[in-house]
Simulated scan of single mutants.
Amino acid sequence: MARELVFYTNPMSRGRIVRWMLEETGEAYRTELLDYGGSMKSPDFLAINPMGKVPTIRHGGTVVTEAAAICAYLADAFPAAKLAPPPESPERGPYYRWLFFGAGVVEPAASNAALGFEVPPDQRALMGYGCLEDVLNTLEQAVSGGGWLAGSNFSAADLYLGAQIGWGMQFGTLPKRPAFERFWERCSTRPAAIRARSLDEALMPAAPGKPSAS
């Protein structure tokens, strides 16, 4: 018997990334819509994710939080979707590299910049991302080739990093460099991305609140 896949989200959150990933897998899932300050902080949900944040998934008895981790989990849980290179493949290294570059480097660098925080040059060694300009240049180089980040196939790394780029350009936390715009265009026009956006947009009136840092 298949394990139930439950998706806890709010359409004004990074749950949009996971929705897209779920649509890419083609697997059936059930959506639990949570609101900020209410059901997201309820005892029932805090028992699932003590941070009281979305996105979160529950796959049978397995709970996964954090958008990048969820994408990585789903890619491995549903290999038929081919959203991750095989473990023994040489593409597995770049796959991990760019998936977690998005989570551990791009996101904090862009968030700090949006808050007006600039790392002093003599303190850059303390930050995992160093400085924003290095992050942007590295990101630009990674997506400039016209292919995908981990070989010839689209993967969860492209989805997650592409979502970071699209979100960043939309809200002004990343500049609209031509390479970023081209990469986002390729990612965002995938049928699963279009379906995911449509599903989340349909839920917007039912989900009052403000964007989450989940």
Rank of each mutant, 00 (worst) to 15 (best):
S111M: 15
P94A: 08
F101V: 05
F78Y: 11
L136S: 09
R195I: 11
A72T: 01
V143P: 05
E27S: 14
R182D: 14
A103R: 07
V105A: 07
R182E: 02
W184N: 03
P86V: 04
A67D: 06
G145D: 08
E88T: 12
L174A: 07
L115S: 04
P94L: 15
L174W: 01
A179S: 15
Y96P: 04
E66F: 06
L199R: 13
F154H: 05
S188E: 14
A84I: 06
A110D: 04
R182I: 01
G146Y: 00
E27D: 04
L99N: 09
E24M: 08
P191D: 14
G38H: 06
A28C: 08
K82P: 01
F117I: 13
T65G: 07
E23D: 12
A179F: 03
V105F: 03
P120C: 05
A72V: 03
F100H: 14
P178Y: 00
A157C: 04
C71Y: 01
S89F: 08
R182A: 14
G172F: 14
G145N: 10
L199S: 08
L46H: 10
R16Y: 00
D158E: 07
A192E: 06
E140V: 04
G61H: 11
N137M: 14
W167K: 00
A113W: 11
D200M: 01
V135D: 00
N10M: 09
A142D: 09
A77I: 06
R3K: 12
G26Y: 12
Y29Q: 05
C187H: 07
K82I: 06
Y29T: 05
R97P: 04
V64I: 15
S152F: 08
G162V: 00
A80D: 12
L46Q: 08
E24L: 07
V6F: 07
E201G: 09
G172L: 13
L74R: 03
L115T: 04
E140L: 09
T173A: 11
I48N: 09
